[in-house]
Design a protein around this nucleic acid. Sequence first.
DNA 1: CCGGGCAACTTGTCAATGACTAGATCGCGG
DNA 2: CCGCGATCTAGTCATTGACAAGTTGCCCGG
Lengths: 183, 183
Amino acid sequence: MTTQRPYHHGDLRRAVLDAAVEAITEHGPAGVGLRDLARRVGVSHAGPVHHFKDKAGLLTALAAEGFALLADELGTTASAGGDIVDLGAAYVRFAVEHRAHFEVMFRPDLYHGDDPALVEARDRAGAALADGVADRPDPELASVAAWSLVHGFATLWNTGALSRADREPEALVRAVAGRLFPA
Amino acid sequence: MTTQRPYHHGDLRRAVLDAAVEAITEHGPAGVGLRDLARRVGVSHAGPVHHFKDKAGLLTALAAEGFALLADELGTTASAGGDIVDLGAAYVRFAVEHRAHFEVMFRPDLYHGDDPALVEARDRAGAALADGVADRPDPELASVAAWSLVHGFATLWNTGALSRADREPEALVRAVAGRLFPA
DNA sequence: CCGGGCAACTTGTCAATGACTAGATCGCGG
DNA sequence: CCGCGATCTAGTCATTGACAAGTTGCCCGG
């Protein structure tokens, strides 16, 4: 393996983000260090700084990416004719499959909440959720109820509090959501 | 103010816990340092260590205290004849009034999840919640639904995601929970 | 083709943190 | 009155995030 790394990494930004996802999935958002990520990726300890300014900047980028991903998922299930329960299931699926992103997204004390890219993505995701309950009676309240239910389910599931249930998370949340929003 | 502090603090453990609550309320769990707490309380930088072993130990104590408080709150509303909606409201009230405790409690990567005192308190709180839905049809599912709803509401509220709503959190969650569990 | 400019990356440094060790101080039981 | 253990202090070490300054190599204008 004489492959001497070139001076320029190629796509360090992406590599660091991926390493961060991996590290957060393993040790939680608290256990991530800029220097550790640099080591994982194989660059010097200050390499990532150039792309993210500081630790909060890294997590801001992660959160923004997460909101964008979530908005996309919700958008596709909505345009595929999915109803509110489908949307909720998509929300939970996202939270489980992208746990690292999800955990950072709802920890505003870790990142810069006023970042433009982040704000845009977050609003987009919020709109997708709101659309799903637009045709329900009292949409304001229904929106709060739906979001609370699926968000609570997702966070509880990810912290392991619900894992005694033997069902798959998506099936379980469908059963639960069907109770709140009968067809 | 010639009150020279005595060598022995009196109740350093409690003082550090209180300082931690204050610090977490201000800056979130990430922004808390053992040394910072020691300074706030006015002891040397290694003082707290004696009582909590390490940082995770501190947060373990905080989490255990939180679960105990929550179990007490739920217990009193239940024995006062409260129904499932009252229990949910109590859950949210706890989360809002004891935000610092609540945030640590559901961040298992920050503390020692196998601490005996913590396990006991957590189980007690869980039992109090489960009791509230015992008389509902399909209690297993109802328990998941109720917990998800109020937990999601509480975390979303605390992160500010729901704060556009002009209602008080407790009243709002009552309206939402009443939808899931009609009287 | 080539030279300068600029982004990407490195090396070095600093203050602060968590964890550890050894030692000082105090209070309580015998 | 003594000593012994719990409580707290002081000192140290590796590590971290942030910053400053230097290096490397790509790309664009001439």
